[in-house]
Protein backbone atom coordinates (compact mmCIF):
# COMPACT_ATOMS: atom_id res chain seq x y z
CA UNK A 1 0.00 0.00 0.00
CA UNK A 2 2.30 2.63 -1.30
CA UNK A 3 1.35 6.26 -0.83
CA UNK A 4 -0.18 6.40 2.64
CA UNK A 5 1.26 7.07 6.07
CA UNK A 6 1.30 4.34 8.70
CA UNK A 7 -1.57 5.89 10.71
CA UNK A 8 -3.88 5.89 7.69
CA UNK A 9 -2.88 2.32 6.92
CA UNK A 10 -3.53 1.05 10.42
CA UNK A 11 -6.84 2.94 10.63
CA UNK A 12 -7.93 1.48 7.30
CA UNK A 13 -7.35 -2.08 8.45
CA UNK A 14 -9.75 -1.51 11.33
CA UNK A 15 -12.69 -0.34 9.21
CA UNK A 16 -15.01 -3.29 8.53
CA UNK A 17 -14.98 -4.51 4.95
CA UNK A 18 -18.12 -4.72 2.82
CA UNK A 19 -19.20 -7.76 0.86
CA UNK A 20 -22.23 -6.88 -1.27
CA UNK A 21 -21.35 -5.65 -4.74
CA UNK A 22 -24.37 -3.48 -5.48
CA UNK A 23 -25.08 0.05 -6.66
CA UNK A 24 -28.05 2.38 -6.21
CA UNK A 25 -29.93 0.80 -9.13
CA UNK A 26 -29.78 -2.72 -7.70
CA UNK A 27 -32.91 -2.65 -5.54
CA UNK A 28 -32.81 -5.00 -2.54
CA UNK A 29 -29.12 -5.66 -2.99
CA UNK A 30 -28.48 -1.93 -2.64
CA UNK A 31 -30.37 -1.95 0.65
CA UNK A 32 -28.07 -4.75 1.79
CA UNK A 33 -25.04 -2.75 0.68
CA UNK A 34 -26.40 0.33 2.44
CA UNK A 35 -26.58 -1.61 5.71
CA UNK A 36 -22.94 -2.57 5.31
CA UNK A 37 -22.06 1.05 4.56
CA UNK A 38 -23.74 2.12 7.80
CA UNK A 39 -21.95 -0.56 9.80
CA UNK A 40 -18.59 0.51 8.41
CA UNK A 41 -19.35 4.20 9.02
CA UNK A 42 -20.56 3.53 12.56
CA UNK A 43 -17.40 1.55 13.31
CA UNK A 44 -15.16 4.20 11.75
CA UNK A 45 -16.86 7.15 13.48
CA UNK A 46 -16.79 5.32 16.81
CA UNK A 47 -13.14 4.47 16.34
CA UNK A 48 -12.27 8.09 15.54
CA UNK A 49 -14.07 9.27 18.63
CA UNK A 50 -12.34 6.83 20.95
CA UNK A 51 -8.97 7.74 19.42
CA UNK A 52 -9.73 11.43 19.94
CA UNK A 53 -9.53 11.90 16.19
CA UNK A 54 -13.13 12.77 15.35
CA UNK A 55 -13.00 14.65 12.04
CA UNK A 56 -16.24 14.28 10.07
CA UNK A 57 -20.01 13.92 10.20
CA UNK A 58 -21.82 12.29 7.34
CA UNK A 59 -25.39 11.12 6.84
CA UNK A 60 -27.63 10.15 3.96
CA UNK A 61 -29.48 13.15 2.54
CA UNK A 62 -32.21 11.04 0.92
CA UNK A 63 -34.04 7.84 1.89
CA UNK A 64 -32.41 5.92 -0.99
CA UNK A 65 -28.98 6.66 0.44
CA UNK A 66 -27.66 7.90 -2.91
CA UNK A 67 -26.73 11.38 -1.71
CA UNK A 68 -24.70 12.09 1.39
CA UNK A 69 -24.00 15.37 3.13
CA UNK A 70 -22.16 16.44 6.23
CA UNK A 71 -19.16 18.30 7.58
CA UNK A 72 -15.48 17.63 7.91
CA UNK A 73 -12.85 19.57 9.75
CA UNK A 74 -9.14 19.84 10.22
CA UNK A 75 -7.13 21.43 13.00
CA UNK A 76 -4.15 23.51 11.91
CA UNK A 77 -2.11 25.61 14.36
CA UNK A 78 -4.69 24.85 17.05
CA UNK A 79 -7.50 26.33 14.95
CA UNK A 80 -10.34 24.24 13.61
CA UNK A 81 -11.31 24.69 9.94
CA UNK A 82 -14.66 23.20 9.02
CA UNK A 83 -16.09 22.53 5.56
CA UNK A 84 -19.33 21.28 4.07
CA UNK A 85 -18.93 17.81 2.64
CA UNK A 86 -21.13 16.15 0.03
CA UNK A 87 -21.15 13.44 -2.63
CA UNK A 88 -23.46 11.29 -4.74
CA UNK A 89 -23.21 7.55 -4.98
CA UNK A 90 -22.48 7.02 -8.68
CA UNK A 91 -24.64 4.61 -10.72
CA UNK A 92 -21.57 2.45 -11.27
CA UNK A 93 -20.77 2.22 -7.54
CA UNK A 94 -18.87 0.39 -6.08
CA UNK A 95 -16.83 -0.15 -9.25
CA UNK A 96 -16.20 3.60 -9.10
CA UNK A 97 -15.67 5.46 -5.84
CA UNK A 98 -17.87 8.38 -4.79
CA UNK A 99 -16.41 11.71 -5.87
CA UNK A 100 -16.05 13.64 -2.64
CA UNK A 101 -16.91 17.34 -2.89
CA UNK A 102 -16.02 20.28 -0.66
CA UNK A 103 -18.08 22.96 -2.47
CA UNK A 104 -16.81 25.86 -0.35
CA UNK A 105 -13.27 25.28 -1.56
CA UNK A 106 -14.17 25.17 -5.27
CA UNK A 107 -11.76 27.37 -7.19
CA UNK A 108 -9.43 27.89 -4.22
CA UNK A 109 -6.95 25.13 -4.94
CA UNK A 110 -5.51 23.33 -7.96
CA UNK A 111 -5.96 20.06 -6.09
CA UNK A 112 -9.59 20.07 -7.02
CA UNK A 113 -11.67 19.33 -10.08
CA UNK A 114 -14.58 21.52 -11.18
CA UNK A 115 -17.48 21.57 -8.79
CA UNK A 116 -15.26 21.21 -5.73
CA UNK A 117 -14.39 17.54 -6.24
CA UNK A 118 -11.18 16.74 -4.43
CA UNK A 119 -8.26 15.53 -6.49
CA UNK A 120 -7.16 12.15 -5.17
CA UNK A 121 -3.63 10.87 -5.32
CA UNK A 122 -2.52 8.53 -8.08
CA UNK A 123 -2.62 5.74 -5.50
CA UNK A 124 -6.30 6.05 -4.59
CA UNK A 125 -8.10 4.72 -7.67
CA UNK A 126 -5.83 1.68 -8.13
CA UNK A 127 -6.32 0.68 -4.49
CA UNK A 128 -10.08 1.24 -4.74
CA UNK A 129 -10.27 -0.84 -7.93
CA UNK A 130 -8.22 -3.60 -6.31
CA UNK A 131 -10.55 -3.72 -3.33
CA UNK A 132 -13.92 -3.54 -5.07
CA UNK A 133 -16.44 -4.27 -3.53
CA UNK A 134 -14.78 -4.37 -0.10
CA UNK A 135 -14.23 -0.65 0.24
CA UNK A 136 -17.14 1.66 0.96
CA UNK A 137 -17.87 5.25 1.94
CA UNK A 138 -15.88 4.98 5.19
CA UNK A 139 -12.81 3.76 3.29
CA UNK A 140 -13.16 6.55 0.74
CA UNK A 141 -13.19 9.12 3.54
CA UNK A 142 -10.21 7.51 5.28
CA UNK A 143 -8.07 7.05 2.17
CA UNK A 144 -9.26 10.00 0.15
CA UNK A 145 -10.56 12.89 2.18
CA UNK A 146 -8.45 12.60 5.36
CA UNK A 147 -5.07 12.75 3.57
CA UNK A 148 -6.39 15.50 1.27
CA UNK A 149 -7.35 17.70 4.21
CA UNK A 150 -4.02 17.04 5.93
CA UNK A 151 -2.12 18.04 2.81
CA UNK A 152 -4.22 20.93 1.52
CA UNK A 153 -5.68 22.76 4.52
CA UNK A 154 -2.28 23.95 5.83
CA UNK A 155 -1.42 25.23 2.32
CA UNK A 156 -4.81 26.95 1.96
CA UNK A 157 -4.44 28.59 5.38
CA UNK A 158 -0.81 29.62 5.00
CA UNK A 159 -1.44 31.11 1.55
CA UNK A 160 -4.40 33.06 2.91
CA UNK A 161 -6.91 31.34 0.60
CA UNK A 162 -9.03 30.37 3.59
CA UNK A 163 -9.44 32.16 6.90
CA UNK A 164 -10.50 30.84 10.26
CA UNK A 165 -14.14 31.75 10.91
CA UNK A 166 -13.20 33.96 13.90
CA UNK A 167 -10.65 35.83 11.77
CA UNK A 168 -13.11 36.21 8.92
CA UNK A 169 -15.70 37.66 11.30
CA UNK A 170 -13.20 40.13 12.76
CA UNK A 171 -11.95 41.38 9.42
CA UNK A 172 -15.47 41.78 8.11
CA UNK A 173 -16.43 44.18 10.89
Amino acid sequence: MEGWDTTTKSTLTQIPLLTTKAGPRDGALWTQRLKEEYKALIAYTGMNKSNDNDWFRISAANPEGTRWTGKCWYVHNLLKYEFDLQFDIPVTYPATAPEIELPELDGKTHKMYRGGKICLTVHFKPLWAKNCPRFGIAHALCLGLAPWLAAEVPILVDSGMIKHKDDAATSAQ
Binding site: P16, K39, I42, T45, S59, G70
Partner: peptide, 24 residues
Amino acid sequence: MIPVETNAVTDDLDYLRKQLDALN
Protein backbone atom coordinates in the same frame (compact mmCIF):
# COMPACT_ATOMS: atom_id res chain seq x y z
CA MET B 1 -9.29 -6.68 7.92
CA ILE B 2 -12.43 -7.37 9.86
CA PRO B 3 -15.41 -8.44 7.77
CA VAL B 4 -18.77 -6.90 8.61
CA GLU B 5 -20.52 -9.27 11.00
CA THR B 6 -24.09 -10.15 10.21
CA ASN B 7 -26.37 -10.05 13.18
CA ALA B 8 -30.14 -10.27 12.84
CA VAL B 9 -30.73 -7.77 15.65
CA THR B 10 -28.54 -5.05 14.18
CA ASP B 11 -29.38 -5.88 10.57
CA ASP B 12 -32.06 -3.27 10.17
CA LEU B 13 -31.52 -0.18 8.03
CA ASP B 14 -33.47 2.23 10.24
CA TYR B 15 -31.71 0.94 13.33
CA LEU B 16 -28.33 1.48 11.67
CA ARG B 17 -29.28 4.93 10.41
CA LYS B 18 -30.34 5.95 13.92
CA GLN B 19 -27.15 4.54 15.36
CA LEU B 20 -25.06 6.68 13.02
CA ASP B 21 -27.26 9.71 13.76
CA ALA B 22 -26.67 9.18 17.44
CA LEU B 23 -22.91 9.05 16.91
CA ASN B 24 -23.17 12.18 14.74
